[in-house]
Design a protein around this nucleic acid. Structure first.
Lengths: 195, 195
DNA sequence: AAGAGCGAGTAGACAGTGTCTACCCACCGT
DNA sequence: ACGGTGGGTAGACACTGTCTACTCGCTCTT
């Protein structure tokens, strides 16, 4: 395999392989050498673009944040009330954590990511800003950043605990919906019926 | 060093070393070989009591759950209202996550623990049951398991996101107190003033 | 009291990991 | 035509978790 047959995009290919791998087999499958193997290059090749394992994983996680943001943006019913839009956002969030389990796990494994360095936080921050904006319209009397922070923590906790099965006993069945509704109602008040 | 000079309690000593190690240096320092080294035995020794790395880490995490439960029990103001007791519980929980960062991280790294197997879940479940009981008295009209589940998720999310610094921008300062109060108020209603 | 058996710990091998280093060679511009 | 260099290879190193063969001190039996 000569140099040019690689279609010249090794960084992208490495990240792509990583995304597929983490979705298929989970975080622990994301070894540097395995990714290189599946990309058809030697284990030293990634080093040129991602000097450390951390940076490669971070690049993979960034794809995850981008995908999540895209899902949120696509599902957002812009015409609806802010309260409803938050509900949709939350459901998309939980659904993402559920359908992309490995990727979601990676995205919040801060020990595996260069989360201190900028670039990763920048990817997740717009989502939080968006949520804060919506919250400000639902509860104008409260500090929107505070409420958004508490709600975002609730979402994250729900996703995580549900992921691990720690909350099955809190709901009868296999649906986290009631838990999510309870959390949304708690932080934002119940949805007001149409006038 | 003859056999008996070990004071005969290698399992306990291994777990103890692990607890100190995770508190001092974090989860990634908890390698089997390092624990054995610090306990003064060969790297194969732990295998007799903990056939796999997972089981040793699980035993260490169990100590964490026990310590957390003890802290909660000790701080519990049994005379106070259920609402106040939940507040204390929540604060102890967040404080534990903050002061025992490494241990807290380990306790919820389900990929490192045999969380499927019984024994570990049994250690964290009483805490949840306790919370559910208190919730039932604060919001008798609601499904206590549901509210407790949502609240517990909120606590966990707050601890985790705060741990990573992802929430500093939601509060002005370095105190997660306002976030916690907001979450408690949301799920349980504000504390009623003394009559 | 002697000897067998066993529990507990040792030591080495193995495959796998991330990082580092020396090398190599196809391509580029001059 | 030819020297440099960017992009990739290949091997070494220290480390990990697991497995296996082994040794040795104690205990229990006869």
């Amino acid at each position: 395999m000569t140099r040019k047959e690689h279609a010249d995009g090794l960084p992208d290919r490495l990240v792509g392989v990583g995304v597929e791998l983490v979705n298929a087999e989970g975080v622990q499958a994301l070894s540097l050498r395995e990714i290189a193997r599946r990309a058809g290059v030697s284990h030293g090749a990634p080093r040129r673009y991602f000097p450390t394992h951390l940076e490669l994983l971070s690049a993979i996680a960034r794809r995850g944040f981008a995908e999540l943001a895209a899902r949120v943006a696509e599902a957002d019913p812009e015409g609806a009330t802010a309260r409803e839009r938050i509900g949709v956002l939350a459901r998309v969030y939980l659904d993402y954590a559920d359908t992309r389990r490995g990727m979601y796990e990676l995205m919040f494994r801060h020990d595996l990511l260069e989360s201190g360095r900028l670039g990763l936080r920048e990817t997740s921050l717009p989502l939080f800003a968006h949520l804060t904006g919506l919250v400000a319209r639902v509860r104008p009397a409260a500090d929107p950043a505070l409420v958004a922070g508490a709600l975002w923590a609730n979402l994250h906790g729900l996703a995580q605990l549900w992921h691990w099965g720690s909350l099955r006993l809190a709901t009868g069945g296999d649906d986290p919906g009631p838990l999510l509704s309870a959390a949304l109602d708690a932080h934002l008040g119940p949805v007001e019926p149409a006038p």
